[in-house]
Design a protein around this nucleic acid. Sequence first.
RNA 1: GGCCCGUUGGUCAAGCGGUUAAGACUCCGCCCUUUCACGGCGGCAUCACGAGUUCGAAUCUCGUACGGGUCACCA
Length: 450
Amino acid sequence: MDITNLESNIPRKGVRTRFAPSPTGYMHVGNLRTALYAYLLAKHHNGTFILRIEDTDQTRFVEGSTEIIYKTLAETGLHYDEGPDVGGPVGPYTQSERRELYKHYADLLVEKGAAYHDEGAIRMRMPTEGTTTVHDMIFGEITVQNDTLDDMVLLKSDGMPTYNFANVVDDHLMGITHVMRGDEYLASAPKYNLLYEAFGWEIPQYVTVSQIMRDAQHKFSKRHGDPTYDDLLQRGYLKEAVLNYVALLGWSPGGEREIFTLPELVEVFDISGISKSGAIFDHDKLKHFNSEYIKAMTPEAFAELARPYIDQAVKTADISRTAIAEILQPRCEVLSDIPEKIGFFNQLPNYSTELYVHKKSKTDEQVSLDMLKAVLTPLETIVWTTDAMSSALTDLATELGVKNATVMWPLRIAVSGQTVTPGGAVELCWILGRDETLRRIRLGIAMLER
RNA sequence: GGCCCGUUGGUCAAGCGGUUAAGACUCCGCCCUUUCACGGCGGCAUCACGAGUUCGAAUCUCGUACGGGUCACCA
């Protein structure tokens, strides 16, 4: 690595932002949001988005972490223009490969008298009087007394830089114009300013984003059982829905619209919509976003996506996966809910005849028994299409002088064994096929006659 | 504890000195209907508190309360 012409290589054009995660083994939802905002800020201004891996803590490195970072950014569409695996003009983009450079800059500060050696480490000398004021694009001006600042370690005794030091050096050398990070760093920002000043470097714009919270007093964290990005995918959330939801957690486009594709977010993103206070992660609202994305899919795309979940519950080959997907799509919030919703297709569950009692449909056990018997004849003979079944059953209701629901409710109970089902009686019967439908109805009759 | 930051319904939030204080999620009701759902309509519910400034404050100032962050050779 040639460290002699680093300064002259610094890009000076346009907005440059970076996502700088540590390889800790998983993608925290808050990290994903920070990455998203940094991406949106850069792309909104036709700027450059950079990935930098901050692996200066050797003890915390987790194998496979960088792959998770690459994978997540790739599948969410947060494509970076420069990074460890794609290269770029100001690399390397992994901090452990930049060791000598940090040493060089730490030594420089020692020469200038701004830093000193201390038990194998190098510390920055902080001023003991006066104040330092930080300008943050979200929080405004923050002023602190310099005597509250400790002499921070720049280079650890193992030769690795601290986060604080590496971050400042790299952000400068990589020409970062807007530094986006979580508010846990806000208190350290004055120190960063002092570091920039000690080098005589221009201070970038700070864009400090508040935390994502689990509740009012705890931040959202894997440690406390909150899901990571991958956990959410495993729970049946779509990556587009997660990204869209997370975009609106702590940021608002201002209008009433909530559903945005990534390119649309790029278009409307503005840091003035970023809020100062923490935002509590609301699983219900994420579900809502997910169901919106599911409903917006083409039936074909949904059928393909739902297929593995349907196969988990439905084992017999003669049941149409496509038909199940079709009735599932408008009433599916989370993919992983699918198996329990449709298990009855595979096997009729044990159910109580109390389910046949439904006031609104004007059914009780006796009425249901009559209806199930009445329904048998038409179902044995008609053409097995939903249209034919539907008209045969409504005709039957008319003939018997009862509400449609009085016929449909017992039938749906008999074929599904549950009060809540995806799809109505006709759809369920059609999917089950004539033989199985008749078998289940006769079983229902037997139960009611007992 | 010191320092820093924050506070609009249960949650996400709009609001930038004059509004009937948007919208979304949740919950509830009604309608539609072949059940649940979907869809449609409607409803409950918010400016943490107290002083100022002002003709007028959710919006500005100060204080209080509550919450968070930080005070590592972790990031």
